[in-house]
Design a binder for these strands. Sequence first.
DNA 1: TTGTACGCGTTATCAC
DNA 2: GTGATAACGCGTACAA
Lengths: 359, 359
Amino acid sequence: MVSDKSALADDAIAAVPEPAPRRRTRSGGAPTIYDIAQLAGVNPSTVSRALNQPGRINAKTEARVRAAAKELDYHANPMARALPTGRTNTLGLFLADITNPMVFDVVRGAERAATAAGLTLVIAESQESGDLEETAIERLLPSVDGVVLATTRLSDERILALTRRKPVVLMNREVDGVTSVVPDIGPGVDETVAHLHGLGHRSIVYLSGPTTSWMSGRRWDALSASVVAHGMSLIEIGPNAPTLAGGRDAFARVQLSGATAVVAYNDLMAIGLLREASLRGVVFPDNLSIVGFDDIFGSDFTSPPLTTVRSPLLEAGTRAVDLVLHAITTGDQVTPCLVTGDLTTELVVRGSTGAPQAT
Amino acid sequence: MVSDKSALADDAIAAVPEPAPRRRTRSGGAPTIYDIAQLAGVNPSTVSRALNQPGRINAKTEARVRAAAKELDYHANPMARALPTGRTNTLGLFLADITNPMVFDVVRGAERAATAAGLTLVIAESQESGDLEETAIERLLPSVDGVVLATTRLSDERILALTRRKPVVLMNREVDGVTSVVPDIGPGVDETVAHLHGLGHRSIVYLSGPTTSWMSGRRWDALSASVVAHGMSLIEIGPNAPTLAGGRDAFARVQLSGATAVVAYNDLMAIGLLREASLRGVVFPDNLSIVGFDDIFGSDFTSPPLTTVRSPLLEAGTRAVDLVLHAITTGDQVTPCLVTGDLTTELVVRGSTGAPQAT
DNA sequence: TTGTACGCGTTATCAC
DNA sequence: GTGATAACGCGTACAA
């Protein structure tokens, strides 16, 4: 059920030296504190102390223990350690799609905070599948001290249920009773609408993401509000896959709509649309203006470069992990909250937007 | 040391309903088979069997156990399970830089193979730091059944040492005694050199990556061999950081060298150089031709689009995990080998290469 | 079919 | 300062 030999067959396989012998101790497993204890002539519990509470033990004994540990290439088993302590020193970051460059900054921010706290960050992604996400979380949850759901596709109920098992922080989504970090899209969206209005556009098409994306809904809401304030109109085309292909496939409908300005749910879609439109002879920004969200890797080297709403994703990732850490250290007794304040968005104007030219 | 309260202060924090109560059983921890046993009126070991060996137990008892488990929202603790069995059903994928789009396909390939085998893939990245990689591996190794090192910065010795602890498969690198998966760069490089030669170039500059990158050295070797065969010359500029910035920063030296054609260690560097050069007035491909490696996300929408050597990264990721799986199931008694055969590379010609124009 | 008892590697709580 | 011993949650021979 696991793998077949064919993986090893028929290829250009060059045999190499000796198949290194694994393991070197009695039980056949990795060296344990018992092995060290025996080698150093002390009690296993002394070994544990020597390694975890430096100084609180006879210097000579400690040295002997450390020497033995080094010789055996000993490494504490985190799982055995987690059993009595209940702590794994590990944090889980769950992503829906690791091939969306938008996660770069989230990961980096989370990593920075985790590393600073001496914790290891493990990343799992679900390929946009709620089921895969479900099982990944189920498997990993007991092995981590806390969790950040960066772009979850789970239902509100499932998320709330997780909350009762481990500290959970949500990103880019709000669920009642769950701590979450979501940048304030208001400023960026207002800038966008004002920018388009100033260029002469009177109507905007919103290319929405998946219906399971909470953030896609919020961006629509923010656009709606802002558009009204500017006396403009707004129509939705969607839902679409939040990918290059999703944007590309929406081109026909966009053209049919006669839109002069499109705001896409994210940069991937915006770029997908922009490239397909260019291929079909659309001239940017004369015939069409496009705005995306996230300011991802690559959004500044399309032709023309993409105007987009930038979010402080690195900050957000850091903040999310900090909140998990806080929940862990305070014994999980933290009031669910929504962090939004200084995480604001801004419009980055590039070449994909301009005044509509009468045809 | 872990986090300060400031993370929670001063921001726009909206308090939300009840801080959900965590945990619901005696010991204060997550529900265990003991809780289920008590609720179902059976022995803990019966619970274990009912859950792991469906059918091999009284149907009525099993039903009762399952009902109790569902009611308590029971989830087996993978760490406690791993202790007696020695298996975690988890694979580790280690990356040097998750912000390099080159990892997209590697991750997807690895995920596909892991999921097919019923295992969960956890990803860890080291931000190009050998030390961070070291500690991440140290922490995670005991918690996984096997490991894929996709772009490791570890020394040969350290890698070989890991081999003695858990099944390890290397990607994009060869180390004596370690199983590895490395695409055959020969064809792609030969095509590249022939392509440039055909355009009229007589000299090539190689923008090398970090000295810790094994693959950077191999690409140099392959270029050397091919260049000689074509009666061309080759010079190296480097080492450089394998990033956009690395390519950008190399521009001055490239210009100084008077090169007409540059082959960069990877697409990130190629794109960085291309963009900087464009900014400085270089006209592509008349003044300069650039070729990258990997065919990453975004390499097809630079101006001009990037000519690059594509590797079967998805295939390679799948293959690497299959090999780990094989090592696990056969009890680790696998001869180290090198898979290279059907993993071949090819040149993707785009607009960044052309005939050099006399100035 | 089900219960008993032990081990997995570590930490923590006792004595000494 | 150090040694013995009991958990931690689960799997599993072995006995019943």
